[in-house]
Amino acid sequence: MHNKETLPNLGLPEHERDLFCDARPRVSKPLASYIEKFLNWSRANSLWILAYGTGCGAIELRPLFTARFDISRYGMAPRPTPRQASLLMIGGYLSVKTLKRVIRSYEQMQNPKFVIGLGSCTVNGGMYWDSYNTINRLDHYLPVDVYITGCMPRPEAIIAGFEQLKKRIKDGRAEGANQYAEQFDWYKANQKKIITDWNMPDYNW
């Protein structure tokens, strides 16, 4: 029934399957280098952050958005809907329940999109390395562009992480969305290994 081009969406009940898209994510080739360079400059200078405070990292995002550190100086702004955002900040540990929502939010964002993992717990589980409910390595589930370590990372560290991300974008190295599309099956297998009640489409556009 399904071939290599479409997704089976086995997690959905039979009557709902045709309501959802079954297309696989596509790799979007970058344009000619000089145009891409200009576009990358604009992407780097207008990073819209998805306002999804997934963990305790969210607490340091508030000083960042407000008067003390004010990252709007760099053209960043929180954006309440994933459709319009280009940067997903993972604020620390992810429980399995949150990971499911994060994947959904990430897939709803439009290419190019970037991921920053905040805090040691996204790197190797950090303080919760032996907890049964938090993941240990974020890069097994989503393509991560920049990790910022610390527990909690200070706002200065997060700003430094943003600078690092901007540099990656300007260099054309921040192709996480394409990487996700290329290794889609590997990411999906990892995700489905821990999200046992997969009741959503395999790819949420």
């Binding site: 997934t54 963990g55 305790c56 607490i59 540990y93 429980s95 329940k97 949150t98 929502r101 303080m127 919760y128 032996d130 907890s131 049964y132 409910n133 938090t134």
Partner: peptide, 30 residues
């Protein structure tokens, strides 16, 4: 609820008394 469940109470049972101090403060961030 449950999006932030890190199983603190389970982890504390696995830690020495002194090791739990870095854990407990993370229950309530503000």
């Amino acid at each position: 609820v449950g999006y932030l469940h890190r199983a603190f109470e389970k982890l504390i049972e696995r830690r020495l008394y002194i090791q739990s101090f870095p854990l407990v403060c993370r229950i309530c961030v503000p």
